[in-house]
């Protein structure tokens, strides 16, 4: 199958590959998998405790090119957003940005799952801290 240019770009030049200190209070870790294909994806965020802004994000994906590109893009997108804003990211936006074909939609779903899992982990660690940050409910572009 042929990949779009954007997928190829992220694939051959992935942004933010690596890891953050899992045990740090400010770091949230999401580890997710797609059993259909056996791919796994880890995405980590570092959140500013005062502002709830995601200041850094790293990923490591063992999987197909589209999964790598989706998670690379996801780290780029979450950086600079508050966690509540990051929770609005939809897999369909990733599909659109990377022009993923229908058979690769589950790779983008995996990336959305990874973002959510990382944020959930961070919230769990920082019980209640996140509560006083106003949620953004508007749909992002």
């Amino acid at each position: 199958m042929s990949y779009s240019d954007k997928v190829l770009d992220h694939y051959s030049n992935p942004r933010n590959v690596g890891s953050l200190d899992k045990s740090s209070q400010d770091v949230g870790t999401g580890l997710v998998g797609a059993p259909e294909c056996g791919d796994v994806m880890k995405l980590q965020i570092k959140v500013n405790p005062q502002t709830s802004v995601i200041e850094d994000a790293k990923f490591k994906t063992f999987g197909c090119g589209s999964a790598i590109a989706s998670s690379s893009l996801a780290t780029e997108w979450v950086k600079g957003k508050t966690v509540e804003e990051a929770l609005q990211i939809k897999n369909t936006e990733i599909v659109k940005e990377l022009s993923l074909p229908p058979v690769k939609i589950h790779c983008s779903v995996l990336a959305e799952d990874a973002i959510r899992a990382a944020i959930h982990d961070w919230k769990k660690k920082n019980n209640g801290v996140a509560q006083n940050v106003p949620a953004t409910t508007e749909a992002r572009q």
């Binding site: 779903v109 799952d113 959510r116």
Partner: peptide
């Protein structure tokens, strides 16, 4: 089913349960 579970997590703010 995986996609639907993700959409549900997005809508409700709950965590999606991983299948493994």
């Amino acid at each position: 089913q995986s996609k639907t579970a993700t959409e549900k997590a997005r809508a409700t703010g709950e965590v999606k349960k991983q299948v493994v």
